[in-house]
Design a protein around this nucleic acid. Structure first.
Lengths: 150, 150
DNA sequence: CAAAATACCGAGTAATTTGCTATGATATTT
DNA sequence: AAATATCATAGCAAATTACTCGGTATTTTG
């Protein structure tokens, strides 16, 4: 019942891009360094995000990546789905073409998985990259406040 | 982001036992047959459930398994946790001794995983085996109703 | 008492997934 | 032309999953 590092690293990378939104292309190398992720591995993850239309790339020297849309228009759920596949605590309730088993008609457990799935989706789709940036800003201010009194 | 078959099979087996609660020991063989699960494999899962104090066993001929408590006192969450481990969409927010990474102080993504974790727990802990039995009964009545008019 | 029925136990194993690494090609800027 | 990037594909070790196999211990039944 865990997400893999794909989702973790991918979200961190997207958050990194969100915090630098509007400042031109951000190199993979710099994201990997800040987020402490293997460069080659992150390359694969960001390729998936690119194909999903979540990031744009600029090739060549001084190139890099940037968000394809504004931070407030990218939901965490989209990022996770792109990297981890459709939300599905159980195959039979996958958001995308669930394969129903033959006992599905009367399957009581399936209702539980559906509720789990929906509650996960709800959380992930309620948060945008902008929300995360705002949260980070709040955190920074809190720290400044404490600094002042120390 | 999937549960393994452990959680799936385990819950189905426990639901099977709940539906037969109060009727004496239920053999593993019969559970496996009804739920279409490999007998040997289910054996391992039910051993875990026994060690977690969720089922009791009776050895020998006519022996079998039964719920250790009443169906309304066993939450789905307990079963899932016994078989799949603590709810933890991410290691750093595991219900049981999460291992925090060094970036934890300012980790914005962690808040998201916490919310995901809590929403999963909430769903799973709100449902008992009795709830599932009631649901099954409702389903049966619905079918009877339709039967009457056909 | 013997046989059958059952729970209990530990090891082994094929397939899949994960989390990478390695190598090289292609595009752009300087 | 050189440097800096992205893009693409293949390979691989470790872990996990979903089992199977073979046997032992216990209890009931004929």
């Amino acid at each position: 019942m865990k997400l893999s590092t794909k989702g973790e690293y991918g979200l961190r990378a997207m958050f990194d891009l969100a915090q630098r939104y509007g400042t031109g292309p951000v190199s993979l190398k710099s994201i990997a360094a800040r987020q402490e992720i293997s460069e080659h591995y992150l390359e694969q993850l960001i390729a998936v995000l690119r194909k999903a239309g979540l990031v744009k790339s600029v090739r060549g020297a001084q190139g890099g990546y940037m968000l394809a849309r504004e931070p407030e228009e990218i939901k965490v759920g989209e990022i996770i789905r792109a990297l981890e596949g459709p939300i599905a605590p159980m195959e039979c309730v996958s958001e995308e073409d669930p394969e129903e088993c033959h006992r599905s008609e009367s399957c009581i457990t399936r209702k539980i998985w559906r509720r789990v799935r929906d509650s996960i989706s709800e959380v992930l789709d309620a948060i945008t990259l902008q929300d995360m940036c705002d949260e980070a800003e709040k955190e920074r201010q809190k720290n400044d406040y404490y600094m002042y009194y120390i």
